[in-house]
Each structure stands twice: as C-alpha cells, then as structure tokens.
C-alpha cells in the first residue's frame, strides 16, 4: 500500500450508527495497512486527506435509503448528489466538506465515499442491523482502494 492512500472514518461512536464510518475505516486500515484518520468534525475532512492522491471516506448516511444500504460514490468525477445527505449534527456535512475541498483545489485525485445508511443514531455502539453490514462496507472500501 503506497503512502498516497488514506482511509477516513467520519462520525461519532457515541451516537449509535453514526460511528459506523470509524469502525469500517479501522478494519479496512488494519487489513490494508493504509493510514486511517478519524474525523468527528466534517470541517476536518479536507485536512484529513491532506494532499493524498487517493482517499476513501466512510460515513453514516441518514434518510437516503433503507437501513444497512451501502452507497459508493466516486466523487472526484463530479459533485455530491443531493440525495446523499450526511448524518452530521452540525452545520457542515460531508457534502459541504467535499465542496469546500473542491473550491480550494484540494480534492484527492481519486476520492470515493462509502456511505452506510444508519438505523439508529442514539446511544453507544452500532445497532445489530448495521453491525451485520460492516463486513460488506469494509469490502466496498477495499474495492475502492483496489479500483483507484
């Protein structure tokens, strides 16, 4: 694995399935050896991928599809689809961070977002429904790295 790839887990593990991005990124990083960054504030995403050539961002989504559905978006090619809403509880979401990185000319050449639709955003830890799709989401991250 070259140094030009980074896996970024976005979310808050104390907010139920919002932590799925962090769990998936950690497993994918352990398998591939790619550096893993954990981001709680979407504002930090632009910094987290820095000047990496390839970045895979894993985040929870909410309201865009049934729980457990995994969406893979190749961002470098275009803009963020509006239906893919971030589950951030703050003013700036993942879509904003990507748009900001693009405006600043700081998008990785290959940027893939793996979104996992959450079931519950309360309490600590993942819900059983989302725990059951973690391996699939890890697989999508590995595919994204290999395809990049």
């Amino acid at each position: 694995m070259d140094d030009g790839t980074v896996i970024i887990g976005v979310g808050n593990p104390d907010r139920g399935d919002d932590g799925v991005g962090i769990v998936v990124a950690a497993i994918a990083g352990a398998i591939t050896g790619a550096p893993v960054r954990t981001v709680n504030d979407p504002f930090d995403i632009v910094d987290a991928w820095g000047f990496a050539d390839r970045a895979v961002v894993v985040d929870a989504t909410r309201g865009s599809s049934p729980p457990g559905v995994i969406t893979v978006l190749d961002i470098a090619a275009g803009s963020f689809p509006p239906r893919f809403s971030s589950s951030s509880s703050h003013g700036l979401g993942l879509a904003d961070a990507v748009a900001l990185g693009k405006a600043l000319g700081r998008l990785p050449r290959h940027l893939v977002v793996v979104g996992v639709e959450g079931a519950s955003f309360d309490g600590f830890g993942l819900s059983p429904e989302i725990s059951a799709v973690v391996d699939d989401a890890v697989g999508k991250v590995l595919e994204a790295i290999c395809d990049a």
């Binding site: 504002f43 930090d44 632009v46 910094d47 904003d96 748009a99 900001l100 405006a103 600043l104 000319g105 700081r106």
Partner: peptide
Amino acid sequence: GIALAADHPEEVGRGLRLKQ
C-alpha cells in the same frame, strides 16, 4: 462560504487551518 473559497482559496484555506 464555499463560493467564497473558490475565488479566495488563500483566505478560506487560512480559516480552515485556524479552525483546525
């Protein structure tokens, strides 16, 4: 702010760095 960043990347980049 994103539209601002497109025309003023140095300034908004500085803001990002400060916020981080």
